[in-house]
Structure formats: structure tokens, C-alpha cells
Amino acid sequence: MGIKRLLKSCTALTLLLVLLPWGQASARPFDELMASGFVRIAVYKDFPPYSFINDAGEPAGVDVEIARLIADEMGLELDLFWMLPDEDLSDDLRNYLWRGHVLDHEHKHERLSGKKVADVMLRVPYDKDFNYMRGYIGEGVYAYQNDLVVMMSPYQRETWKLAHDTQRLEQVRTLAVFQYHPIGVEMETVPAFMLTSVFNGNLRKNVRHFRSPEQAFLAMTEGEVAAAMGMRGELEWLLNQHSDERFKMGDTTFPAMGKPHWDIGIAVREADRQLGYLVEGILEPLVLNGELQEIYQRYGLTYEKPAFFDF
């Protein structure tokens, strides 16, 4: 998923938002959006505990509830735009915010012509370096690579964590223990890259790669691995679903990671800053008055206020 690969991609210098020949999808001016009666907010599909379809067949998750709050405060109907993650964040921003996906998606509101794009995208890493990244375009000229989008309004701080089987590892004080015990991780993510690189690659033989954090966690419950590494929210959700005291969240920190903590916010098109400021004005009080924390707690998650609000 793009959000999980942002830091790895930055390291590899592969995060590029290129102005492609076929240009942007049709974007709605602010006045047209407000007059339409609905706001289209993008969330990731099948991404519990943030955005997913629950057992009752209804949209659920932290970001779904945040999207509802935004729409309600705007006095508009919510049109959820379900995103399928691409290779990295650049692809997700391009596909769902400014150019449109090569494959059309089904939506409740079809009054917009051309490819469908969201008005607001949630769960976007708030990263100024990425937002203002410049790249060489030829003939001695450098230009902003992400000039079509703007990241703003951080509403949560995320971090990498580790869950472990206490019957196999009572405590995990250092990653060095995984020279002797297998650990599961989602493939092609920052933790997967880090675990195969630290300690001169001595952990590599014990790193097991899975298609999702859930598969890595299930492998731990079945004894295939002694621990699973992923984002804190996903691991907390999985621990709550299994409710077995044998499996616990570790306190290990990961100094080998270039950026172990990061803020999560929204993204809008550069031309839609007015909409972004409106959403920012909705979310900021919810962060400060504790209402967002209550949403996270309902899903059994730890809420950490973004570093943006450390004042």
C-alpha cells in the first residue's frame, strides 16, 4: 500500500508524480462541489481498522467515521470513494485525486463527466519533504514533482510496532533476537526492507514475507513465526480480534528506521486549497477536544496526537 511504502520509496528516490500527456481528470470547483450536495472522500478499501466493510455489510472504520464527520460538518452527503492501493503514494495520489484511474469505478453520483476523482483523500502521510520534492526535468531545470497536490491537516500520528508470541519470546528488547527466531512482515514495506538490512543482513534468513499484516499475524498465531511487525493500528486491531493474552504488543523501538513515526493527514488538489482549509477547520477542533481520540478508542486503538500539534 502506498502509505506503507512512502518512506522506503523516499529512500530509493522513486516517488515521482509526473505530468502525463493525458492530463488531469475533471476537478470540481469549490462552489460546484458545495452546490452538488455531496463530497467525495477517498479511503482505502479492505484496510481495517481504518476503512472496511463490516460483518453487517456497512462501511466502517476510523477513516470512514472521520469522512462522515467531515461531510456532516460541510452539510453534504458523503460519497465514499474506495481506493485500491498501487505501488506507492505517488500512484495513489495520481489515480484517485488528480488524474483518475485507468479503470473506472462505480459511484453513487455519476453527474461528473470524465474519469472520477475524489475531492479529499484521507490517510495520507503528512510529509513536507515529499510535498515539496523537486526533480530534474532537463536542460538544467528543476521543478516541483508534486505540484498538483497539497498535503495538510494532520489528524493522527502513526508508528511501526511489533507483536510477539510470549510463549516463544517473553520480551523483545532488541531486533537481534530474530537472528534465532522467525518474524513475519508484509512484503515490500518499510519494515520488510529494514529487517533484511540491519545487523549486516543477519536477520534475513528468519524474515518471512506475507501479502498482508493479517497473514503475518495469523502465521504468528499458528506458530510459523514468533512475531509480526507492522503499523501500530493494524496490529492493535488484530490483537483485539484474537483476544488471546499469549500475543502482546512489544515496546521495542526501531532506530534503524529512517522515520519510525509519521503524521497522517489529508490531501487535496493544489487548486482546491479552499476545500482543504475548510476540512482543516473541521478536523483541528476534533483533534484538540479529544473527539478523534474517542473514535480511535471505540476501535480499540491507541490515539497519538500528531507532532504538528506539539506547541
Rank of each mutant, 00 (worst) to 15 (best):
N95V: 02
W98C: 00
L97N: 11
P85M: 07
L69C: 07
S90N: 06
D92G: 11
P85G: 10
D88P: 05
E77M: 06
W98V: 00
W98R: 00
G75R: 08
L84E: 14
Y96M: 03
E77W: 04
L97Q: 11
P85Q: 12
D86L: 07
R68L: 05
D86M: 05
D88R: 07
F81H: 15
L97G: 08
R94K: 15
L78I: 05
R68H: 09
M83G: 02
L89K: 00
Y96D: 05
D91E: 15
I70R: 15
E87N: 13
M74F: 08
W98E: 01
G75E: 04
G100D: 00
N95Q: 11
A71Y: 07
Y96A: 03
D86Y: 04
M74I: 04
R94N: 10
M74G: 00
L97P: 13
E73K: 15
F81I: 06
L97F: 11
L93E: 08
L78H: 10
L93P: 11
D88W: 06
M74V: 03
L84V: 14
D91N: 12
I70L: 10
E87A: 14
N95Y: 01
S90K: 01
D91T: 11
A71G: 02
L80I: 09
G75I: 05
D92P: 12
L97M: 12
L69D: 11
G75Q: 05
S90R: 01
L89V: 00
E77G: 06
G100M: 00
P85Y: 13
D86P: 04
L93H: 11
E73L: 04
Y96W: 02
L84H: 11
R99Q: 13
A71W: 10
L84K: 15
D79V: 03
W98M: 00
L80S: 01
D91R: 13
L80F: 03
W98Y: 01
R94Y: 05
M83S: 01
A67R: 02
D72T: 14
Y96I: 02
L89I: 02
L69P: 05
W82A: 12
L76P: 01
L97T: 06
L69W: 12
G75F: 05
W82S: 08
D91A: 12
A67F: 07
L78C: 08
L78Y: 13
R68K: 15
